[in-house]
Amino acid sequence: MREKILYGAGLIAGLYLVRNLYQILLVLPDEVDQGAIYRILLFHVPAWITCFSAYFLAGAASVMYLIKKDMRYDTFSVASVEVGLAFTLIGLATGSIWARIIWGIWWTWDARLTWALITCIIYAGYLMLRHAVDDPTARAKNSAVLCIFSYASVIITYKSIDWWRTQHPGAVLSIRTGGGRMDPAMESILFQNAIALLLLAGVMVAVRMRQEDTQREVESLRRYAHAAV
């Protein structure tokens, strides 16, 4: 039953994305200054919204793990970081493609881009740390602490457009600027895409959590078998 709900939610997210794609590609007009390429923004921003949410939830789950010592929080935070990292890569790639068209270069070392890359590296380090610890409790504890530290980089990435003068465009969404920076129709699609990606990410996290649970069970069975022999 749970499986059906999970795949159903994934299907809804997929269909919603297809419907949004239709809107973006065929209904919305080109933008005045940027032409057709602005459309990538409607995936770029939602991807970052998704990955920041995933990192936030992973951080919160890590705090909860340290308080409650319940393995489920650890499972959630690793699943969340893995999915978040995938969306970080999508965010970096879409941004890079946009930059190639608008700026003429794939990459520039401005504060926003640099911090986004650092965030990516830091969370990849988190996953590496997990591989280097064998004992499940020690792994959960150490990676929870690292996850809390890592969240600092997410905050800096988010705020970097306010703190430094960046080549990366400043805030455009009306929730941060009070409106006027973006056409309401385009902004509405952007948020709908964000909802679709968040739902998709949620499904991916749930699937990944089940894998993690199974893996833990296999590990404990293996230990049990060793003990029995």
């Binding site: 650092i118 590296i121 830091i122 380090g125 590496m128 740390l129 280097a132 890592s150 600092a152 980089s153």
Partner: peptide
């Protein structure tokens, strides 16, 4: 592991 983890944090 130590340098891999600390350098990005120290940036």
């Amino acid at each position: 592991m130590l340098p891999t983890l600390i350098y990005p944090m120290m940036i």
